[in-house]
Amino acid sequence: MNPVITAEHLTIRFGSFTAVNDVSFAVGEGEIFGFLGPNGSGKTTIIKALCGLLTPTGGTGTILGMDIRKDAAEIKRNVGYMSQKFGLYEDLTVGENIDFYAGVYGIDGQKAQRRKAEVLELTGISSYLKRRAGQLSGGWKQRLALACAIIHSPQVVFLDEPTAGIDPVARRALWDLFFGLSGQGVTFFVTTHYMDEAERCGRVGYIYLSKLIAIGTVAELQNLPDANPTGTVRIEIYIPNPSQALDRIRRIDSVREATIFRHSIHALVESEGLSSLTKQLPEARIAAIEPSLEDVFVTLTYKIMKDSK
């Protein structure tokens, strides 16, 4: 793997508050790297530090081989950034927004025209060229925001919750765009709340309470020892009326976690208690399963909460 984004023991403090605590990772060229974590866990702060907007308190990082502490100006020229707020001027037209960002990145003349045509083609937004950005729907605003974020052909793009609050069709269309660009060698660093989005990513990092808890491909995360504690099994319980049964199942001693999943219940139970559980739930059909990504993160979070007590 040829690392394009690296963080080594990155630590950022605001006064006594530690927003990012000793985080290390590397993202390879053309990868789509997903970054998951609850609000306030430090996702945006890491992006800001990697773009050179914040000087880390400790540790270091690189983007395309450039030092985030020293080469902030050069880094900004080579990365794209798109946030959930889009950063669009609603009273300007689609074309004017793109022209503005082209100008801001120092692209002008023929090159700007060529590049504008390219991003319009890529995002399929040409037909709205003269429309005010404020009149576009959420999905189209996002396409425009992406067009603006990649106008300078960046090799690295940071997406901070890019699909918050838009409909599934627009979301999928946007992800198709990300995949298309990543196929051309563009590296994506995406933060998200959505598990299904995280599952689309090549690799995923999970940050909780300012610490990077887990990192790897989805399969690697599913097989993490901490997500599958020894002496436990993860099972799916098919039971009539699972919503009513959930409380009863949670009260059984050998059940560590239980949650409803469609028409059944997913549970993490101690292996020793499995046979007694079967007896206690005669009406249920039980099968062993792999943990979902959500299961993995919930189990990891519980473990941290328990350890810190």
């Binding site: 900004k76 950034y81 946030s83 707020k85 889009f86 950063g87 669009l88 990145y105 940071f158």
Partner: peptide, 13 residues
């Protein structure tokens, strides 16, 4: 307020 300033800080402006 609209978040465009945050976007600008990510550019070489």
């Amino acid at each position: 307020e609209r978040g465009t300033l945050e976007q600008l800080t990510m550019t070489p402006v």
